[in-house]
Computed example of a mutant assay.
Amino acid sequence: MNTFLSNQMPTDSSMLTEAEAEAIKQLEHILLNQEQLKLVAGNCEEMTIPDSVHRVLCQVVQAMASGKNVSIVTHNPELTTQQAADLLNVSRPYLIKLLEQGELPYILVGTHRRVKFEDLIKYKQQRDTKRRELLQELIEISEEAGLYDYEE
């Protein structure tokens, strides 16, 4: 199950009132300890919450309860450059530079660039892997130079 975050509709947990934060903690407890949840409307109409929605609610509420900022973006096969930049946590101009350098494939829809979601995720995974490898290499160089003491 993937939930992808964007800056489109942020919920800033630092702006929550004490009552809201407490309600989120209570909701987290309910979501994590109940298997079958129902939504009850103002007119007393009831509906069982589907498992897929329950899982998303759990992820969102857990993140908010631990003080993280959360926002949800619907999954589209093609993203705008701003949506792609948000997902990579980079600026839009930086993303445009990546596109123009051929680091990340894109398509044109009229005059607007679109990035395929699957290409973006693949790029992000490759970028993250490369970062981890470079960090490990830096640690090894530091250890060899006696600058980094690693205790197990």
Results as ranks from 00 to 15, higher is better:
T129I: 07
R131S: 09
K25D: 03
L79G: 08
H75Y: 12
T111L: 14
L57F: 05
L16I: 07
Q125S: 08
K122Y: 11
T3F: 12
A23Q: 11
K116A: 10
L16A: 02
N69R: 13
L37H: 05
Q125G: 05
V73D: 15
E103H: 10
K122G: 12
A85F: 02
N89L: 13
I49G: 00
L135F: 15
I141H: 12
V73T: 15
R55H: 13
L104D: 07
K38Q: 06
P50H: 14
L99N: 04
Y123W: 12
S52V: 11
Y148G: 00
V60A: 02
T11P: 09
I139V: 15
H54S: 10
L16K: 07
L147A: 04
R92K: 12
C58W: 08
E45D: 06
V60P: 00
S14Y: 15
Q59R: 09
F117L: 00
A65F: 08
T11A: 11
S71Q: 11
H29P: 03
Q126S: 15
K116Q: 06
V56K: 04
R131K: 01
A23C: 13
Q82P: 05
D119N: 04
L37D: 02
I30V: 05
L87M: 15
G146V: 04
M9Q: 14
M47H: 11
R113W: 04
T80D: 11
P50S: 12
A21W: 00
L37I: 01
P93F: 02
T129R: 06
Q34Y: 08
D12G: 01
E100H: 10
L120C: 01
N69L: 01
N76Q: 13
Y148E: 10
V109G: 07
M15T: 02
V115P: 04
I139G: 14
F4K: 11
N7M: 11
S71G: 13
T74S: 13
K25M: 06
